[in-house]
Amino acid sequence: MNDNHDLMRLIQIKFPRLSKGQKLIAEYILKNYDKAAFMTAAKLGVSVGVSESTVVRFANELGFSGYPKLQKALQELIKNKLTSVQRLQLSNDYISEENALKGVLKADMENIRATLEKINHKTFEDVVHSIFNAKRIYIIGLRSSSALAEFLGFYLNLILDNVKIIGNGISDVFEEMINIGEGDLVIGIGFPRYAVKTIDALEFAQSRKSKVVAITDSLVSPLASQADYTLIAQSNMASFVDSLVAPLSVINAVIIAVGMREKEKISKTFADLESLWKEYQVYSYNKNGNESR
């Protein structure tokens, strides 16, 4: 395989000619290639319900000299991920207008389930601890991850007073991080396809001796290689749209864990905010003065 990005298409093209057992393997890889990439042939066989020899023959059928070569191709695929055009081609094959709602919701449910299995609870506690120990907290997430960064920053700003969201606007990312140093914390958020500037920002933070937290999809993610702590959230979706449900759920958990340690402060903050919101009509209220739902 000269181009690992073509692997998913190759499996689809070969699919009609595969044996029954090999088709089960193909379906599993197409839906769970990030898991399959780190499974032995025996483990993949057990997960699918076929023999190890069937897995090896499947690799041969795709043109690989053995299963290790197929596994390496899958791992390369995770590093580089699919282009938007290739993801669009996959979505056309697996998600139609008729089953879009059910298909996407089921995929998001699977992403949350897989995230619950993969995420390291000790690392999660270390991240929360690091947030409280940091002098300043910088949050960066670009392109599709910018929504996640804004969400995390919005709520942490209500709880803490040392949070800064790094944007990709008029000023350069590095200009916004110019004063970063030891004792500070950078939270980088990125999912395939990874924004280069986010990776560079985390590398810059480490060079300034700041702590780095990555919220990303895999321990082989380029963000993870620049991080002290990595929170894994699965974002697989056979579509041109990123699945950010599981990442958002992890971010929610971080916000709530931080908030629970600052209950008294949050209670006062929200009491003040409620008065301001009502006075300046931030939200819609009914005639009885209660907030409309």
Rank of each mutant, 00 (worst) to 15 (best):
I29C: 07
G63P: 08
K81C: 11
N32G: 02
L223K: 02
M237Q: 01
N111P: 04
Y155M: 03
K268E: 15
S267R: 12
D200M: 13
K209Y: 11
T54C: 04
D217Y: 00
H5W: 04
A201L: 02
K20I: 14
D126S: 08
N80W: 09
E291N: 05
G183H: 10
K43P: 00
D217P: 00
A257Q: 01
I255M: 04
E150H: 12
D172V: 06
I11W: 01
I29F: 10
D200Y: 09
N80F: 10
I166E: 01
Q71M: 14
S91C: 03
F58W: 10
F64V: 03
L70M: 02
K197A: 11
T40V: 08
N286V: 09
F124K: 07
L24A: 13
E97L: 10
S171G: 05
M177Q: 09
S249P: 03
S130R: 08
E110F: 08
I13H: 08
A253E: 11
Q75S: 09
T123C: 10
E176F: 08
D93L: 15
L62E: 02
G103L: 10
I251M: 01
A214K: 01
M260R: 15
E117L: 05
S130N: 02
S145N: 14
R57I: 06
I119E: 13
D34K: 09
D272S: 12
S221A: 11
G49W: 01
V220N: 11
G49F: 03
S239L: 10
A195I: 12
A195R: 07
